[in-house]
């Protein structure tokens, strides 16, 4: 999972200015989720390569650092990577190599592993792009505009606000523990004692954030906050020509890639 710094770092990325940052939140959300769905749908490696190139081009347009984006993708790969590593050994088919102890590597498994890895990389790139060009509250507001139930949207919006507060609390508690030489991996203390400290840390973090959160929420309610309140509102962002170009480009790309696959599968080509 992500560390304390990553939540704040993400918000810094979303404050940059580019053509993509200025697009309507709903359009960014729908198109990039659509790319993920298309990625999961396809079994053609060529399509996945084209989609990855398109997403890298969008990253270039959004002025996000390639180094940061690639670092994030690489850090996330191990989550699914472990299952992918097993694929050449667990999908029976044509044996292409036999390792010691009679462990076979199968062609079908290898190809399936490559397909899963390609899907994973394209999906991760799409999410890294979305999270780098859309502030969290903008995404919440986009969901609300797209019809998310109001109670759900309110808890979602509050959760995002508390998230930053929670990380601050966690940071403070860890800082205080570090100042007192507490190290969770220090084997000089008993394992049970260390586990108890982790439990108390979680409980204290929860209690402190709840008590702050309760007063913040009651202050908001006393100032007229309700599930109908528009907390994030930017009148400048309306669906206009830029958004239509962005939607058209993505839809055209999908149609072209599908036509390309049909053409390549025709006999004699």
């Amino acid at each position: 999972m992500n560390g304390i710094g990553s939540v704040a770092e993400l918000e810094i990325e979303t404050n940059k200015e580019s053509f993509l940052h200025l697009l309507d939140g709903r359009v960014k959300l729908i198109i990039l989720v659509f790319i993920v769905i298309y990625t999961v749908y396809t079994t053609q490696l060529l399509i996945l390569v084209i989609m990855e190139i398109y997403l890298l081009f969008l990253i270039y347009l959004s002025h996000i650092s390639f180094k940061t984006a690639l670092k994030r993708i690489l850090l996330l790969l191990p989550f699914g990577g472990l299952i992918i590593v097993f694929q050449p050994f667990v999908h029976p088919g044509t044996v292409i190599y036999t390792l010691p102890f009679g462990i076979n590597i199968y062609y079908q498994g290898l190809m399936f592993g490559i397909l899963l890895m390609s899907r994973l990389i394209v999906s991760l790139t799409s999410i890294v792009l979305l999270s780098s060009i859309s502030p969290m509250q903008e995404v919440v507001q986009s969901f609300r505009k797209l019809g998310m139930p109001k109670e759900f949207a309110m808890i979602f919006s509050l959760m995002i606000r508390f998230l930053f507060m929670f990380y601050d609390e966690l940071h403070r508690i860890r800082h205080a523990q570090k100042a007192r030489n507490f190290d969770i991996f220090n084997k000089k203390t008993t394992y049970m004692w260390r586990m108890k400290q982790v439990g108390y840390t979680i409980m204290m973090m929860f209690l402190r954030a709840y008590e702050h959160g309760e007063s913040v929420y009651l202050s908001m309610v006393s100032r007229g906050f309700s599930d109908k309140s528009g907390l994030y509102h930017d009148k400048k962002r309306k669906i206009g020509s830029k958004e239509y170009v962005f939607i058209a480009a993505a839809v055209c790309l999908v149609i072209i890639t599908q036509l390309l696959i049909i053409l390549l599968s025709l006999p004699g080509i």
Partner: peptide
């Protein structure tokens, strides 16, 4: 309501404590 929202944020944060 704040308890639910705080718990959601809390679950998110405690998943980062390895």
């Amino acid at each position: 309501v704040p308890l639910l929202a705080v718990l959601a944020a809390g679950i998110f944060a405690i998943m980062s404590v390895n």
